[in-house]
Amino acid sequence: MQQPEVRTMGQKTMGIKSVKTKGIRSWSSYLFVLPGLGFLVFFMFFPIAYNFWLSVKDVKVTNLNGEQHFVGFANYATIFKDELFTISLTNSIIFTGLSILFQFVIGFALALFFNKRFPGRDIMRSLMLLAWLMPIVITATLFKWMLAGDYGVFNYLLQTLGVIQQPVSWLTEADTSLYGTILANIWIGIPFNMIILLSGLQSLPDHLYEAAKLDGASRFQQFVHITLPLMRPTILVLLMLGVIYTFKVFDLIFIMTGGGPVNASFVLPLYAYQLSFITFDFSLGATVASIMFLILIALSAVYLWMLRKEEQTL
């Protein structure tokens, strides 16, 4: 509002005025951010704080509105000693690790392929994204059906290819249930990896490849010495985001196996859910959630450190 006025002022007044308007400007600027920020602080940072606060108390359903005590790190000790914690942490690491590995490798292969020019490329590329956009509940139900032991189409495929002789009940056997959920999660993640890597590939300068070709570098040499080093920042961000998103996955496993059979596919988010909403040990549930949060924070600290190192070497 002040700006047009300021512009018509003389030199000296303008100096004074602009100091004043700067104050007003930044104050009213906060009004733009305030609703969003206020919302986030209240509905997001409050829950985080509340989680940590609960994790050092002894709140259960029985004393939710009654007397509560400060117990220090006793809940953390209880959780670390619990066998279920070890199981779910291990499963979470396997789930995240294998999902990311396959999503990334297959996504990268597809990205390299779709980086070529051919008719219909853009349509097919974005069609694949449909898998990523599907609500998880649908994907989970769908894969439950495809991986069904008796009449699932996945067993039919494997039997036709001669990979297995007898049908496997993928989701109801302890040896395979975790891998069944991983398979579904890989399918979901491939298009996201492909799209991000593809946009990275498309921003690489052509002349480097032309120069390499003149020098007689093979396709493979070009990939190792040009593509990979230049793609490093994109790859780092992508892997990091992948780990964070995959570590949080709840719906998919909850619907496909419920964590079973006998905890064979039990992961950390399910563990937190069970403590908070099945046995109503709110403090223990909050402790698991807080541990997950700390793991993710630690991971992203490593990521930021790697990114900084990256910038220094460039």
Binding site: I244, F247, K248, A272, S276
Partner: peptide, 9 residues
Amino acid sequence: MLPNIMLAM
């Protein structure tokens, strides 16, 4: 990177 389950409770 907040797990939804951490917000839900």
